[in-house]
Write a protein that binds this DNA or RNA. Structure first.
Ligand SMILES: Nc1ncnc2c1ncn2[C@@H]1O[C@H](COP(=O)(O)OP(=O)(O)O)[C@@H](O)[C@H]1O
Length: 410
DNA sequence: TCTCCACTGGAATTAAAGGCAG
DNA sequence: CTGCCTTTAATTCCAGTGGAGA
């Protein structure tokens, strides 16, 4: 083989076979260990569709990586195999990505539009109008539509349950077609946000996906690694380690598979012929840092300013601070960067968002006479994150910034 | 019990993007 | 083409609420 500048990076000959796709989250294996019950239950519910009747609506609960999406997709594939006439159609919608009523209706309707020129635009129309177009499209044929709303809690907490109310009674407006809803939620308590009528209609059937324990994760990993690697690449001891680590993370199978994939990539890059426990540990660190770095890169500038304020204060020796302290530093950073200064009300919300992303810790605390406020603390390593933040061109003017000594810091 | 410093919920505003009727 | 309307995201404005130390 010719010498090329890419040589060191492409790994001229693979040390071991690895089928990356098999380890990706989008891959649906032909067997889902430890989800037999759920598969059965869902199959039973949806089998109705094959007889031409509308299946019950289903509400599925479970933390991330408990196999909810995998089970739904699996049944979708099975159903398609049996349904020759294509009278049953699946529509999958992730409400974390499409999180507005208009967006959901528009996207669903567009699945049924083949003619590009007739696609519904992403803005401009009224929501009612889009709903009407959706109804028309659906009713063009006799069919059963199974609408899967993943992360359904996201759209409810953000926009209320009006959209769900509308979708649940869409069958009243349809004559030929019938629609069933499958809602998938991470949050067991999200039904508290729902109108009781919406709640009962949506949850004709309820399913709960418990987190996997280490043993179950091990089985899942073993099944996948059999497919993805040659024998011996991923030893049982390595798989148990990964399973144990993922079990600590609320039994997240996605985490486990990510760990396995990244470990394998590290092993491959080091030109070793098997995955070692060291690779796993390194993979864990890499994934953790990568996730945080990605989250920060995609933050809007204002959030970056708030985060930088928190980090700078922390660096200056005040690990824990109040909202007021953050806001003080934030205002100064805005001045130096020429960015507009948002109100403290808004900054409070931005801090809460950073907390949700796990980038900072924030909890409300009362200091008696000192008032009641959030106690804020950075949750990310100062140096690395500062480097990432400072790559933002808007933050260029404050590279190397140190806050003025603030006596009020806790 | 008083009071401090924000938290927090909600309404209102603003600006962007874009369809549609005249 | 113009003016008007819709949705959405981000933000401001307003004001009631509250935990606990002095
Ligand atoms: N029982 C299982 N057997 C094999 N793979 C599984 C199983 N449960 C989950 N997975 C895999 O774990 C990953 C995450 O699962 P997913 O269904 O997307 O989780 P959720 O939707 O609950 O967040 C996917 O790659 C999926 O294939």
């Amino acid at each position: 083989m010719e010498e090329s500048i890419f040589q060191p990076y492409i790994g001229s000959r693979p040390i071991f076979k690895m089928d990356r796709d098999i380890l990706r989250p989008s891959f649906v294996p032909d067997r889902l260990p430890h989800r037999e019950e759920q598969l059965d239950q869902l199959a039973q519910i949806l089998a109705t569709a094959l007889r031409g009747d509308r299946p019950s609506n289903v509400l599925i609960f479970g933390k991330t990586g408990t196999g909810k999406t995998a089970v739904v997709k699996y049944i979708e594939n099975e159903l398609k195999k049996l349904d020759g006439g294509r009278a049953v159609q699946y529509v999958y919608m992730n409400c974390e990505i499409v999180d507005t009523p208009y967006g959901v209706l528009q996207n669903v309707a567009n699945r049924f539009v083949e003619n590009l020129s007739q696609r519904i635009p992403f803005t401009g129309l009224s929501t009612d109008r889009v709903y009407q177009m959706l109804v028309e499209k659906l009713d063009e044929e006799k069919r059963i539509v199974i609408l899967v709303l993943d992360e359904i809690d996201k759209i409810v907490t953000k926009n209320g349950d009006d959209l769900l109310y509308q979708l649940l009674k869409i069958n009243d407006d349809l004559t030929k077609a019938k629609v069933s809803l499958i809602g998938i939620s991470n949050d067991l308590k999200f039904t508290e946000w729902l109108d009781p009528r919406v709640k009962s209609r949506l949850s004709d059937e309820k399913m709960v996906f418990p987190p996997y324990n280490a043993g179950e994760l091990f089985d899942i990993l073993q099944q996948r690694s059999h497919k993805a690697f040659d024998n011996g690449v991923a030893a049982e001891s390595v798989l148990s380690l990964i399973a144990a680590l993922a079990a600590q993370e609320h039994g997240d199978a996605r985490r486990a598979l990510d760990l396995l994939r990244v470990s394998a990539e590290l092993a491959e890059r080091a030109a070793e012929d098997r995955i070692t426990e060291q690779h796993v540990q390194r993979a864990k660190n890499k994934i953790e840092l990568d996730t945080v770095v990605e989250a920060i890169k995609s933050l809007p500038t204002q959030s970056k300013l708030v985060l930088l304020s928190i980090i700078s204060n922390g660096e200056a020796g005040a690990d824990r601070m109040t909202t007021g302290d953050v806001y003080g530093t934030y205002k100064e950073l805005c001045r130096k960067t020429g960015m507009p200064v948002l109100t403290q009300r808004r900054v409070t919300d931005l801090i809460s968002e950073l907390d949700m992303l796990g980038l900072v810790h924030a909890r409300v605390k009362s200091y008696g006479r000192g008032g009641r406020t959030k106690e804020v603390q950075s949750a990310v390593p100062f140096l690395e994150i500062k480097k990432v933040l400072e790559k933002d061109e808007f933050l260029a003017p404050v590279r190397g910034y140190r806050p003025k000594s603030q006596t009020t810091l806790i």
